[in-house]
Design a protein around this nucleic acid. Structure first.
Lengths: 197, 197
DNA sequence: CCTGAAAACCGAGGGTACAAGGTTTTCGGA
DNA sequence: TCCGAAAACCTTGTACCCTCGGTTTTCAGG
C-alpha cells in the first residue's frame, strides 16, 4: 500500500516557525529589505530548504497576510447573527483599532493586496475569494438590518458592503501614506455615521 | 565659468521614450514579469544606460504612475471653482470611467500605491504629497458646497474628502481582485447618492 | 570653432529570488 | 523491526536588479 499524502510533524512545526519569523522581519524591516536567506537563517535552515515550504517570497507574504485575514475573520465570527447595525459598525471600528495595534502589518497587508492584483500571483485567487465572502456575508447582515427597519428600505446592501470594505482598505492606504497621521478609526466611524443618517 | 546643471535634449527625449515603452510593457505583461533589459531594448539602450535615467525599477514605476496622476489632476483642474456637488460627483464617476479605459494601468497604480507605503521608497513622498493635496482641494470644494447649502451644515468636509478618495481606491482594488467584475463606476455613483441624501 | 564640465551611456560584477536535481529524514504499513 | 515512498532539506546554477567604475557625447562660455 502506498502511503497517503500529507505533511510531517516536523514540517508543520517548521512552517509555523517560518511564518512567525517572516512576519516579524517583514513588519520590522519591510518586505523588500528582508531577504529569504535572513528568514531562513532565523528559522535555522537553508534558503533552498525554505523554498521547499514556500515556493516563492510572495507565497510567504501571502501566508503572513492570511494569518491576519484568519484572525480578523474569527473576530467577526464572534458577532451575533442578528446584531444591530450599530453593533456591526462598532465591530468595523474595532477592526480598525485592532489593525493599529500591529502597525507594521498594515503596510504589509496593503502590499499583499496589491501583489494579489496580478492574476498570475498565488495570492490572487485567495484574496479574490476572501473579499467575495467578506462582502457577501456583510451584505447578508445588512439585508437583515433592512428587514428589521434599521436601514432604509431599498438600500443596495451589496453595494453598501463593498463600500464599507473599500473605505476600510482605502483609509488604510492613506494611513500608511500619511505616516500614520490620518485617523483610521475616526474615518471608519464617520462613514458609519453617514450611512446611518 | 562652470556650466549650470540641467539635462540635455537627447536625455529628455530618451526619458519620455522610456516611460512610454515601460508603461506599455507594464500594462501588457505586468510589472514583475517585465525586465529592465527588455524595456532597455525597446528603448534602444543598455540596461546600464536605462538605470542612468531611472536609478531603480521602482523609480520607473513611479514615473509611469505620475503620468496618470498628472493626467487625472489636469482633468480635475478643468472643473469650475464653484461647481455644484452634482458636478463634483459626476467628475468622480467620470474619473473612474477614464481609469477603466486603461485597465492595465489600474493594476499598475494599485501596485505603485502599495510600493509607496514603504517610507523609504522614492514613491512615498510623491504619493503622500499627491494624496494630501487631492484631499485638501476636494475638501475645499465641499466646504463651498456646504456654504451654498448643497451639503448639510456641520459636514466634516475633510473626512468626506478622505472617504471619497478611499472609496475610489478601495473599489479599484476590488475591481482588480474580482477580475473586473465589480462595477467601479456604479460603486462610486452609489456612494455619491448616499452622501447626497 | 575650441574647450571642458556635466550629462549620457556602456560593461563588469555582486546580491538576491528562484529553478532543478540530488540526498537525507520521516513514518505508516508489512 | 524494517522497508520504501513521500516529505524535508541541501547544493548548484540562472536570471534579474542594481552598484560602480570608466568612456563617449552634448553644449554653454570664451
Amino acid at each position: 500500500m502506498p502511503r497517503r499524502t500529507g505533511s510531517y510533524a516536523a514540517g508543520r512545526q517548521r512552517r509555523d516557525r517560518i511564518v512567525e519569523v517572516a512576519a516579524a522581519r517583514f513588519a520590522e524591516d519591510g518586505y523588500h529589505r528582508t531577504s529569504l536567506a535572513r528568514i531562513a537563517a532565523d528559522a535555522d535552515l537553508t534558503e533552498g530548504g525554505l523554498l521547499h515550504h514556500f515556493p516563492s517570497k510572495k507565497h510567504l507574504l501571502l501566508a503572513v497576510a492570511e494569518h491576519r485575514i484568519a484572525t480578523t475573520a474569527q473576530w467577526w465570527a464572534e458577532l451575533d447573527e442578528d446584531a444591530s447595525v450599530e453593533a456591526v459598525f462598532d465591530r468595523m471600528a474595532g477592526t480598525a483599532e485592532r489593525f493599529l495595534r500591529q502597525p507594521g502589518l498594515i503596510e504589509l497587508f496593503v502590499l499583499a493586496s496589491a501583489e494579489a492584483a496580478d492574476p498570475s500571483s498565488p495570492a490572487h485567487a485567495v484574496f479574490a475569494e476572501r473579499y467575495r465572502t467578506a462582502v457577501d456575508s456583510l451584505a447578508a447582515v445588512f439585508t437583515r438590518c433592512v428587514r428589521r427597519g434599521e436601514l432604509a428600505a431599498g438600500t443596495d446592501c451589496d453595494a453598501l458592503a463593498r463600500e464599507c470594505v473599500a473605505v476600510s482598505d482605502g483609509l488604510q492606504l492613506q494611513w500608511v501614506l500619511s505616516d500614520g497621521r490620518v485617523d483610521l478609526v475616526a474615518g471608519v466611524r464617520e462613514h458609519a455615521r453617514r450611512v446611518l443618517r
